[in-house]
């Protein structure tokens, strides 16, 4: 092959790369500017759902990444753990129910009563109990319904930790509401950190009365079994639960229901 041929090939290859780059940036700029125009990206052979996943990713990167880890790993040092500004989302696909994501992203309500990192939201006075600084709690950014759908679709593709979640973990045996609450409160001490209804329970963990809507059952089971395998620095201790307790507690939380709309926050202020 002559030198000239080689050069020509090189130039051709360069041109091809350039064309691909232009195409990609055109698609992303187009979708960043006009998020609603699903399906009109043309030119490429992406399917409609692939397009919305791509648009969701752009929203995540540009508007969510400063508070949420959309790529792993979880924090392994206390410094990193404390610095995080929102829950890790890089394993969202194994954790959340898509329906709930769509609903919540468009209409977010508080999940952790004392905020994501409670120690940044408390008032400490010598000689009296620590109190939550309710006024310091920021509202979560809300998406439009269309954006929420795209972002939820994207989040469902984040399958890190798939191997850590036990498949079909729950047995057929039905939940026992009375024993479930007894266990959650008295035998396992979960109520110390989690609310089972607004204003009743601890404030440093996420409330668990919307867990059924929010989280996948297999995820709940696996997280209870070892919070540290999902988040090594988690503020939730490993309660060293046996199989029976894991079943009872997971089913109990899944049996709880959110109060009617608008009753979320009340009762916590006093």
């Amino acid at each position: 092959m002559g030198l000239r041929d080689k050069r020509m090939r090189l130039a051709g290859f360069g041109l091809l790369l350039f064309a691909i780059a232009v195409l990609f940036s055109a698609v992303s700029v187009g979708s960043a500017l006009n998020v609603e125009a699903a399906g009109t990206a043309g030119a490429t052979d992406l399917t409609e759902s692939a397009i919305s996943i791509k648009k969701g990713k752009i929203i995540l990167k540009s508007r969510c990444g400063k508070c949420h880890a959309i790529k792993g790993p979880a924090a392994t040092t206390l410094k990193d753990f404390k610095a995080r500004k929102g829950p890790d989302l890089f394993y969202a696909g194994v954790k959340y129910n898509e329906e709930w994501l769509i609903k919540w992203l468009a209409n977010p309500v508080p999940i952790r009563p004392a905020g994501f990192r409670y120690f940044k939201n408390i008032i400490v006075t010598e000689g009296s109990d620590d109190t939550v600084n309710w006024d310091a709690l920021a509202e979560h950014v809300a998406l439009t319904p269309d954006e929420a759908e795209m972002v939820a679709a994207t989040l469902m593709t984040f399958m890190a930790y798939k191997g850590k979640v036990k498949k079909n973990a729950l047995t057929e045996e039905p939940a026992d509401a009375f024993m479930g609450e007894m266990n959650f409160d008295k035998f396992s001490g979960c109520l110390a950190c989690h609310e089972i209804e607004p204003g009743y329970g601890g404030v440093t963990g996420p409330e668990v009365y919307t867990v059924a809507e929010r989280l996948k059952p297999d995820f709940i089971y696996s997280y209870l079994k070892s919070p540290q395998s999902f988040d090594p620095k988690s503020m939730m201790p490993d309660k060293e639960l046996g199989e029976n307790f894991l079943q009872v507690l997971t089913k109990y939380m899944l049996s709880l229901e959110a109060p009617p709309d608008g009753e979320y926050d009340e009762g916590e202020e006093e």
């Binding site: 404390k82 004392a114 408390i122 109990d129 620590d130 329970g201 601890g202």
Partner: peptide, 27 residues
């Protein structure tokens, strides 16, 4: 100290005197 104020303070309080933010509903 940092660990205490992150993990233990949930219940024992930042200053360690037993008055963490979770104590209100603890039996």
């Amino acid at each position: 100290r940092d660990n205490y104020r992150t993990y233990c303070a949930q219940c024992h309080g930042v200053n360690g005197s037993g008055g963490g933010v979770n104590t209100e509903s603890m039996s």
